[in-house]
Design a protein around this nucleic acid. Structure first.
Length: 423
RNA sequence: GUGGUCGUAGCUCAGUUGGCAGAGCACAAGGUUGUGGUCCUUGGGGUCGCGGGUUCGAGCCCCGUCGACCACCCCA
């Protein structure tokens, strides 16, 4: 009988690593709280149409990377490939931004699904921490999101990363830029890569992002997006950069474009070394027309998504130390049947008192029990045998220092309570 | 979807022109009948990814397939 494996492009998060996830998620929640973003949880699947209208029919993500199926009732369902569309749908549907002047600042942590060929830093299911801020068109809102994201990375211990920013401007600016780019690139169409020749009509902005040397060469001297910005968009982007001055290092990158159609004005991406070719650990931007596109009252919005797997890879590459959310563990060691019963009682008492404790239940040698305590990274061992039972004592061994002492059984819980915070 | 590299013990990997399935680490027991993290001894562990073919004989050669890794595309 062959064993069943996890589907391609998925990964189990095992005990050896799950504490890192808890740590990152806890930091994400903490940072969100500091910036006053509240959690929203939306379904991991939506009606397919949401992503077609929201993310864009012609984007690669929607046109060829979705997990889409027909449910038993005949509706087309898609596993979400990104977080923003579902959140926008939810805030519209639940009237969070129903009125003139409504604001909402929300964050989410959850999985996204894209049917792609896996490689380093790229899976078919990946997790993102993301935030969305609705109702504020001012550049301060863009910068608040950016600073939140960078704060998140710093608190996770990430040191080496780069913030890239660009602006495509409002819808008119975007069209103007697109036309300018097509005008610039069309004369040299034959020297572009095959992919980019196709993009020239479908999605010319993406050509700027190509890694093909022919495209990189062709894009030299291309008009930057900022040249096509309207006065309002130019001022907005200018103000974003002013607000970032002194708050965060950034690089204005005229070639930065992103894969969703809904972006307007500011967009940004954070890259980090150690990730191979997929070096973006998170990105975001403003989407002032998306709420209206999805049937809501016209409301500006801005937000980002930060990939958790990629962050963990980058942290690993930089040998960053995440705070370990696991508290200290006490290990009980029993010698003899009477002591085993006493340990069982003690174990229940410790846990009732809120102290994490465990014991080997397989009746093994003292040596084996110590060995396991060590392997489980216990801080203290409590040893109970015939001697201790007779004297009403418990032997306490500090596994870090090897020191050992006796504590009266009746005082044990209180003594543990006072010792635990030191670990 | 395209291309390259690779699948042998729980992990990292050796395995010669095709000829008995190996090492280190890890794990278990013992050395020490009450003491881990060092040391010594012993031991248990294998559908050589899966399926087919060639051969007296396949981990090794051939075909197919699945998966992993890396890159393209795209993105977190």
């Amino acid at each position: 009988m062959s064993s069943i494996k996890a589907p391609r492009g998925t990964a189990d998060i095992l005990p050896a690593d799950s504490w890192k996830w808890q740590s990152v998620e806890s930091i994400a929640r903490q940072v969100a709280r500091l910036y006053h973003f509240q959690e929203i949880r939306t379904p991991i699947f939506e009606y397919t149409e949401l992503f077609h209208r929201g993310v864009g029919e012609t984007t690669d993500i929607v046109s060829k990377e979705t997990f889409t199926f027909t449910d038993r009732g005949g509706d087309s369902i898609t596993l979400r490939p990104e977080g923003t569309a579902g959140v926008v749908r939810a805030v519209i549907e639940n009237n969070l931004i129903a009125q003139e002047g409504s604001r909402a600042k929300v964050f989410y942590i959850g999985p996204n699904f894209r049917y792609e060929r896996p490689q380093k830093g790229r899976l078919r299911q990946h997790w993102q921490f993301g935030v969305e801020a609705f109702g504020i068109a001012q550049p301060e809102q863009d910068v608040e999101c950016i600073l939140l994201q960078l704060d998140f990375y710093r608190r996770c211990g990430l040191k080496d990363f780069v913030l890239h920013i660009n602006s495509l401007g409002d819808a008119e600016s975007k069209t103007r830029y697109r036309d300018a780019l097509v005008r610039f690139l069309t004369p040299q169409k034959s020297s572009l890569s095959e992919d980019s020749q196709r993009r020239l009509t479908e999605n010319p902005l993406r050509i700027l992002d190509s890694k093909d040397p022919r495209d990189v060469e062709a894009c030299k001297g291309a008009p930057p997006a900022v040249d096509s910005l309207s006065d309002r968009s130019r001022a907005h982007f200018q103000r974003v950069q002013e607000l970032l001055q002194g708050a965060a290092a950034f690089e204005a990158n005229a070639n930065l474009v992103r894969g969703f159609d809904y972006y307007t004005e500011t967009l940004w991406e954070v890259t980090a070394p150690g990730l191979g070719a997929q070096n973006a650990i998170g990105g975001g931007g403003r989407y002032d027309n998306l709420v209206e596109t999805l049937g809501g009252r016209p409301t500006p919005g801005v937000g980002f998504g930060a990939g958790i797997e990629r962050l963990l890879i980058a942290l690993d590459a930089q040998q960053a130390q995440l705070p370990d959310p696991r508290g200290p563990l006490i290990w009980l060691i029993a010698h003899g049947p009477a002591a085993r019963q006493a340990c069982w009682d003690l174990l229940r008492e410790l846990r009732s008192a809120g102290i994490a404790a465990d014991i080997d239940l397989s009746d093994r040698s003292i040596k084996a029990q110590f060995k396991q305590a060590d392997r489980e990274s216990a801080k203290l061992c409590l040893i109970l045998g015939d001697d201790e039972l007779k004297n009403g004592q418990v032997t306490v061994k500090n596994l870090g220092t090897g020191e050992q002492s006796s504590i009266p059984r009746v005082e044990l819980i209180e003594r543990m309570r006072s010792m635990i915070p030191d670990f």
